[in-house]
Amino acid sequence: MQLYNQISSVIFDALYAPFGHDFPAFDLLLWPVLMGVVALIVFKYVSNQGAIARVKKQIAMHLLEIRLFSHDIRQVLKSTLQIVGKNTIYVSHNLLPMIVMLPPMGALMVQLVTHYGYAPSEVGAVELLHLELDPASAQLAGDVSLKLPAGVSLDAPVVRTADGQVYWRVRADQPGDHVFEIAVGDEIFEKGWAVGGEARKIPVKRLRSAEALLYPSEPAIPSDAPVVSIELETLTRPLAFFPDGEGGILLWSFGVSILAALALKPVFGVTF
């Protein structure tokens, strides 16, 4: 998980934002289209194109049967069952290319969100920094301490809950890419906070679970750590001409790549 995030970050940090993060349109248009093209190429060489074409024809044939023999209920039922069966075969032919495409596509979309989905907090903003301990380590809540970076102050006393959650209300006094140091027993965990300045890749949350794949801007929490998550409320970056936020960018990039693949399918001679 951590290795995957590191690799994808190295690649996409180099590729994205060639003109800076103030021009999201370039990446949000280019990369989903390229992703669609790559998907077509992968489909062409990884999938069994002949088998896919064959099973599609068979499905079409059974659909025609239903239309022609709609008065014969037994034939309609038989054709319907055959369509279900052929569809299963069709999906199975698509599985391999989809599995091959999933890691790069996922990385590409998640990195787009990481680069363009969030805005830095404003100077003066007050946010909640939240650390969740593993239930088995909830008793460590009393031993959790926070070291504030310069430019950030504590706005209220800490709250430790009975179920192992720790909350700090922090205030951004100065702009910068601040890093909190949170000590849990002997271990130190870092958490970033982007405040002020230009649009950029923004740290959101650190997680121990597989969900960390969605937040590659900071390292995942090691699986044997007593901490489950460290989060800081992050602003959604408004994008003038594109859907914004995590869901908006994911849907946009997926939709554009599908449309690009459909449009370019004849050019690449791909069947799917």
Binding site: P157, V158, V159
Partner: peptide, 9 residues
């Protein structure tokens, strides 16, 4: 959740 040590929740 009321903190045990501070008047904060």
């Amino acid at each position: 959740h009321i903190d045990g040590d501070t008047d904060t929740a």
